[in-house]
Design a protein around this nucleic acid. Structure first.
Lengths: 217, 217
DNA sequence: GAGACTTTGTGATACAAAGCACACAGTCGT
DNA sequence: ACGACTGTGTGCTTTGTATCACAAAGTCTC
């Protein structure tokens, strides 16, 4: 069967690989990194599955979308697999991001030390308020949102992180889309409308809590 | 994405409802609240679907797991449906939570103003470090983790929010489970191991970014 | 280097979720 | 108060995803 899944990006809009699979790959990368720095060299789908609480079969199937990385009777070479997965995901390079909304949440995001080590660099910060524009926060000079388009070009920004209050979130997202951004991380508590080809992921702790309470009872 | 475990064997009809459905209900509640405060009284599955970018059929199916809330030819009464859904989810009451880990992230979480209005009250804060225990942060006296079990009882805490560094996350989660907590919101970048009956939801912006980069290309 | 053992990669199968389509209940205009 | 509409609730179909199961490929031991 083996539909030939090369890494070369043809401009075909739809990928054959299910989105759920893509979302699991970073999980694999993370575990591989851990095992790797623990000095291990080889790992089986069984071990990966135990760690991630999923079946070995699912892991093998997921990986089989992209190639044949394992050796029968042995398992996967950890550093080789990690590198392959990073390349597939585009994690073999760095990505520039902008944060829009420099309130409490935006400040927490720009000063969060977890992005840079993973190759995500926040290079620009925006706000609508004249009070805040011009201030320097975590080493970033806050710009006016009207500068967005230009700044996206200047800094080669590929990712927008939205931390504005809910009532401005949709318009900020529209502006990001207008500026050519295709990947948005949205902290505002709404389901934004975006055109095809734009990926949005929401970070919403309240939503998570609200679905957990169903099970306490 | 995150691995969650649930299986409270209550043979109640509710245990039959797929977890994905439960996770969508808070979304419906949110939109209903918005429409309601915009003065609307009735909404159709079509309108809801447009707003949430899903098919009307899916919304009707989801709701049909819990009863018949709509009127043919008219739609759903907004405030009635909102109330029903809140009751189903257990959002018709407040829930007490504890935050464990009072570093940068934990401080941001306890001072985040988005939880209380939704009925989630953070009543206790914990840390392992002697430096921090005893301090007052956002009106909370930081306690030692050894106090956890007792504090869970004293404050009737039902939700644990984990904001410790990754290398202590599993042990903190174990301690929460040990203390009888069944719902955990995990900010640490790992897939924790928990026994059946405990629900964990992960908040992990890096993971979200890492799966988005696949699509920029 | 032969035979026992391990673990992959994948077709086939089973299961779960989403979407369709329509009978039926209720609404609205005249 | 009746006919044209509207929109729900749901059995059935389709699509999508996870799991099973096993041949093939490789490893390890003596």
């Amino acid at each position: 069967m083996a539909i030939n899944n090369n890494n070369s990006d043809n401009s075909l809009p739809e990928s054959v690989v299910p989105e759920v699979v893509i979302q699991r790959l970073p999980l694999y990368v993370r575990v591989l990194t851990q095992f790797s720095s623990a000095g291990e060299e080889v790992i089986s789908s069984e071990q990966l599955g135990t760690r991630l609480q999923m079946t070995p079969a699912q892991i093998r199937k997921d990986l089989s979308y992209f190639g044949r990385f394992g050796k029968q009777g042995r398992g996967y070479n950890i550093s080789m697999l990690e590198e392959k997965l990073r390349t597939i995901l585009g994690l073999d390079r760095t990505w520039n991001a902008a944060v829009i909304g420099m309130g409490r949440l935006g400040r927490a995001v720009v000063s969060y030390p977890g992005f840079a080590p993973e190759g995500f660099n926040i290079l620009a910060a925006f706000d609508a308020s004249d009070e805040i524009v011009g201030q320097t926060i975590s080493g970033l000079q806050v710009e006016s949102i009207s500068q967005l388009s230009q700044s996206v070009i200047d800094h080669d920004i590929k990712i927008g992180i939205v931390t504005v209050p809910i009532d401005h979130a949709q318009e900020v997202i529209d502006a990001l889309v207008e500026a050519g951004i295709k990947s948005i991380l949205n902290y505002a508590p709404l389901s934004p409308q975006v055109p095809e080809g734009v990926t949005v992921r929401g970070i919403d702790p309240v939503l998570s809590l609200q679905s957990m309470t169903y099970y306490i009872k």
